[in-house]
């Protein structure tokens, strides 16, 4: 939940000053989480391409007074400004969310979601079911990946071609892959539902938790800090135009 607020806060910020509290906040979180810095840098590597692409786009495509121009491209003052701005924003986004995934197990995540959204039960939103679906989906990702690989190899063995041709041809060649994948996914879902029922699953009511999610004093402090941070960001946005 905190991560979500942080991400939203990044979009609220419109100027450089707004990033100062964000930077402080992020640095503090990184420090507390004890995630080695190397890990975060490694996570950044994956998005370098995306990052540079967006920087380039912003650099060249933002209209404004041209500083340097060659051929049809021109770099404007505003372009540089937005490019740097976007780069910082993206970096912060990635670091912020990777900290969450590095420190929280998927189960804690779904548990937290279930609890955090618990108030929605009042308006008949099936929160428990959604959380359960999420955790099952997470559990089945590696299994389905494996299955895709298997089907692909089986079809390649019978002469299917997934690699040549243009994009449209490639996409078309995926259709015979998707059909068996869906069938097997449905079969798995059926089996799983039966296994869950056999083990007495009957929805969220009357269930206990093996690892109940308990909020300690720390969590309360974390929430307060988070709210303070949010207030600062909003204040900065309103005050400095």
């Amino acid at each position: 939940m905190g991560t979500l607020i942080f991400l939203v806060s990044l979009f609220i910020t419109k100027n450089y000053i707004g990033y100062i509290p964000a930077l402080i906040f992020l640095a503090a979180v990184v420090k507390i989480s004890k995630v080695p810095f190397k890990f975060i840098v490694k996570g950044m590597k994956a998005i370098v391409f995306l990052l540079s692409l967006s920087v380039l786009c912003n650099l060249f495509l933002t209209p404004g007074e041209p500083l340097v121009s060659f051929w049809k491209l021109s770099i404007s003052r505003e372009g540089i400004k937005t490019a740097v701005f976007m780069a910082i924003r993206l970096t912060f986004l990635i670091i912020g969310s990777s900290i969450m995934t590095l420190t929280t197990t998927p189960n804690q995540l779904t548990d937290g979601l279930e609890k955090g959204l618990g108030f929605m039960k009042v308006i008949k939103v099936p929160v428990h079911e959604i959380a359960m679906m999420m955790s099952i989906a997470l559990r089945f990702i590696p299994i389905l990946t494996e299955e895709t690989d298997k089907i692909m190899k089986a079809q390649m063995a019978r002469g299917a071609d997934f690699e040549s041709g243009n994009i449209i041809k490639k996409i078309k060649s995926l259709i015979p892959l998707l059909v068996p994948l869906f069938i097997s996914a449905f079969r798995r879902a059926n089996d799983l539902a039966m296994a869950m029922e056999a083990r007495g699953y009957r929805g969220g009511d009357g269930r206990t938790k093996m690892k109940p999610l308990k909020y300690h004093g720390n969590d309360a402090v974390a929430y307060i800090i988070l709210l303070l941070y949010l207030a600062v960001i909003i204040a900065l946005r309103v005050l400095i135009k």
């Binding site: 197990t105 189960n107 559990r139 869950m196 269930r207 206990t208 093996m210």
Partner: peptide, 15 residues
């Protein structure tokens, strides 16, 4: 069902 062995074993009693 669980993503960790012990969580899966705990699923039945949880229910």
């Amino acid at each position: 069902i669980g993503q960790v062995v012990e969580e899966d074993v705990g699923f039945g009693p949880e229910n």
